[in-house]
Simulated scan of single mutants.
Amino acid sequence: MEDRRQHSRRTTELQLEVFDLNTTQRLGRVVDLSTDGFMLFSETPPQVDSVIECCLTPAAPIDGIREVILGADCLWTRPAADNLHHWAGFHIIDLAEEHAEALKALLKRL
């Protein structure tokens, strides 16, 4: 598979949960992150080509950051080895300036 990322993703030890802002449903946990996108580990696979408005929420505030709100497009999903979970790749398509700064601050902590 061709890697077309413009920025390298960083694996995170931070506990970043992702929530759908429209339904408040937990979508999963971020396993890697960049300024362009993230990979999600989830119980339920998101729909490929779906666009979601979501919130990345650390388990505890990090440098005062409680959330990063963004719009993301689901590019792909794959079942995990346990066949109970799923991996999904997202491209960030909408990010307000204040949340872009919060994302950059989180990335510095990785």
Rank of each mutant, 00 (worst) to 15 (best):
M1D: 08
E2D: 06
D3C: 05
D3F: 04
D3G: 04
D3S: 10
R4N: 14
R5P: 05
Q6V: 01
Q6N: 15
H7V: 07
S8P: 14
S8F: 12
R10G: 08
Q15L: 10
Q15T: 13
E17K: 11
E17M: 11
E17S: 11
V18A: 13
V18K: 10
F19S: 07
F19E: 14
D20G: 01
L21R: 12
N22C: 02
R26E: 14
L27C: 08
G28M: 09
R29I: 10
R29A: 11
V30P: 00
V30I: 13
V31W: 09
S34R: 05
F38L: 15
F38G: 07
M39R: 14
M39T: 11
F41D: 14
E43Q: 14
T44W: 05
P45L: 03
P46G: 02
Q47Y: 00
Q47K: 07
V48D: 02
D49E: 14
D49H: 03
D49T: 05
I52N: 02
E53M: 06
C54A: 13
C54H: 01
C54I: 01
C55P: 00
C55L: 07
L56S: 06
T57R: 15
T57L: 12
P58Y: 01
P58W: 00
P58I: 04
A59V: 04
A59C: 00
A60R: 12
P61Q: 02
I62S: 02
D63N: 07
D63F: 00
E67S: 09
L70H: 00
L70W: 01
L70R: 01
L70I: 00
A72Y: 00
D73G: 01
D73S: 05
L75K: 03
L75Y: 00
R78H: 12
R78D: 10
A80N: 15
D82S: 09
D82I: 11
L84G: 12
L84R: 15
H85R: 15
H86M: 02
H86K: 03
H86G: 02
H86L: 03
A88K: 01
G89F: 04
F90E: 03
H91K: 15
I92E: 03
I93D: 00
I93H: 05
I93R: 09
D94L: 01
D94H: 07
A96R: 08
E97V: 05
E98I: 07
E98C: 06
E98R: 10
E101R: 15
A102Q: 14
L103T: 05
L103N: 08
A105S: 09
A105G: 00
A105V: 08
L106W: 07
L106S: 08
L106D: 09
L106R: 07
L107D: 06
L110Y: 11
L110R: 08
L110T: 15
L110F: 12
